[in-house]
Design a protein around this nucleic acid. Structure first.
Length: 278
DNA sequence: ATAGGCGCCTGCTGGC
DNA sequence: TGCCAGCAGGCGCCTA
């Protein structure tokens, strides 16, 4: 979404903002609209599940999409879709940045000061981006909690940006059962999970995200990674790897898809048991 | 510390 | 055809 929005908005000035009456998870303040007017968009970037719009005069606009949020750059004359809560007018180019969110689990807020955005992430305890996580940190976070892997992956303080789809896909790619407790992982299993997570996320980004119902990127195009799902949403279907049935469990309050044969609950013995051991 | 349940919302699907 | 339950890319709050 960020990549598709960026070419239309970076370097442009905000000339006006209109907000709907509907209340978002974090209510939009009309004062923010006044403060935004005339500011230049310096950059658009992502941190975890947050979209950060860096503005001139040390302002930062944060956008969280929740479940159904979308941020699109469209021509100013395009029809305004239902559930459009914020419309940002951009100087020159005739484009608008629009935030739409039918379920209103999303949030948009404006932060001030040179460290406003950084402080926000620090205070919320947001974890590191998955791509730069080192083995030591990862092992430590897995061992330091008795929670199951699914819950750990979804915890934004452990690693930022992983949601339900990519947690399930990463666990399948690593061959690990989502209900395994973090401390039960051997060193090589922990490392497998870290690498699988990075690989799945990279592939998903290359595929421009996953469209299950209504997700679209910043240009309004649906994603393509949903065609690559190995387990997510495939309950009862045949596992692509072993042909067994994909199962679904409720873990950490979320549906968790996995193949019980490829992702055994008991860790597979790394070395066959010798006669004198046990 | 952790799990589970609920609430926040709208929209879609499947069963009756 | 219509109604109703159940479900969904998230997350914060509460209780046990």
């Amino acid at each position: 979404m960020v990549r598709e929005i960026r070419p239309f908005v970076v370097g442009r000035r905000l000339t006006g903002v209109r907000a709907s009456r509907r209340r978002l998870r974090r209510p939009w303040s009309p004062a923010w609209g006044r403060r935004l007017r005339g500011r230049e968009i310096l950059d658009v970037r992502r941190r975890g599940k947050w979209i950060v719009v860096d503005l001139s005069d040390d302002l930062g606009l944060l956008v969280h999409l929740g479940m159904t949020g979308r941020l699109v750059a469209v021509p100013a004359g395009a029809p305004v879709a239902s559930h459009t809560h914020l419309v940002f007018d951009l100087a020159s180019g005739g484009m608008q940045l629009r935030f739409r969110d039918p379920r209103r689990f999303g949030a948009v807020c404006l932060l001030r000061g040179p460290q406003g955005v950084d402080r926000f992430f620090l205070e919320s305890g947001l974890g590191p981006e998955p791509f730069g996580v080192d083995r030591g940190y990862w092992r430590c976070r897995l061992a330091g909690s008795r929670r199951c892997l699914k819950a750990i992956l979804l915890d934004q303080r452990v690693v930022a940006g992983v949601g339900n789809i990519y947690a399930d896909e990463a666990l399948f790619a690593a061959g690990l059962h989502p209900a395994r407790p973090g401390p039960s992982l051997a060193v090589d299993e922990a490392d497998r999970l870290r690498r699988a997570l990075v690989a799945v996320l990279r592939r998903a980004i290359r595929g421009r995200g996953s469209t299950i119902r209504d997700y679209v990127g910043g240009s309004g195009r649906p994603g393509g990674f949903q065609r690559r799902f190995r387990v997510y949403g495939r309950t009862g279907e045949a596992c692509f790897r072993c042909g067994g049935q994909v199962c679904c469990l409720r873990l950490a309050g979320r549906s968790s898809h996995f193949c019980p044969r490829c992702q055994p609950l008991a860790p597979s013995p790394a070395v066959p048991e010798g006669p004198g051991r046990g």
